[in-house]
């Protein structure tokens, strides 16, 4: 069946079984492979996207649940002119990624946190950033979030 939704600002119609996890609809039906499969049980966060602005682990949400909603993936964070989102830029400046596989999810979680809190405290970062990184990039993730939020509210206003 066809599910009508909005992905990265564009209206799309996804032809998939309603119980298909959003993750696989994004990856296999829409070809948006920046969102990663890590565990399938909502434990690692590699599949994190925004659904109506809320951080969501897409491996555990059926695609039918996003009908009529707005989904943002890592591919949708850049500005229309291709400028990186402040959080993405901060990730480069702090040289965060190693293998990089979890970083789409980490960045989506960080953007959601910053949208919600403006300037998150250390405790808020600890509480919100629960995605797994096997390479152990956590100290640099902390640093990048601080850097991104140190650059005034523009980062938040400009967010997807």
């Amino acid at each position: 069946m066809a599910i009508e939704t909005t992905v990265n600002g564009k209206a799309v119609s996804i032809e998939a079984e309603p119980d298909t996890p959003l993750l696989w609809a994004l990856r296999e039906d829409l070809g948006l492979t920046g969102t990663k499969f890590g565990c399938g049980i909502s434990a690692c966060g590699a599949c994190s996207v925004h659904v109506n602005g809320e951080i969501t682990r897409s491996c555990s949400v059926p695609v039918s649940a996003v009908a009529g909603k707005s989904v943002t993936t890592i591919e949708g964070l850049k500005g229309e002119d291709g400028t990186l989102h402040k959080v993405q830029q901060a990730w480069i400046d702090a040289q965060v990624p190693q293998c990089g596989y979890c970083q789409s999810g980490q960045i989506m979680a960080a953007v959601a946190l910053i949208q919600k809190t403006g300037t998150p405290s250390a405790a808020q970062v600890d509480e919100a950033m629960t995605n797994i990184c096997r390479c152990g990039t956590y100290p640099r993730i902390r640093k990048a979030i601080l850097a991104a939020t140190g650059q005034a509210a523009v980062a938040v206003e400009g967010a997807a």
Binding site: G34, K36, I74, E75, P97, G100, Y101, Q103
Partner: peptide
């Protein structure tokens, strides 16, 4: 690192 830009915008293509 030369590989990092593609790892922050979802464009890096892994085996999967």
């Amino acid at each position: 690192r030369l590989d990092i830009p593609a790892k922050v915008d979802g464009s890096a293509t892994y085996g999967i």
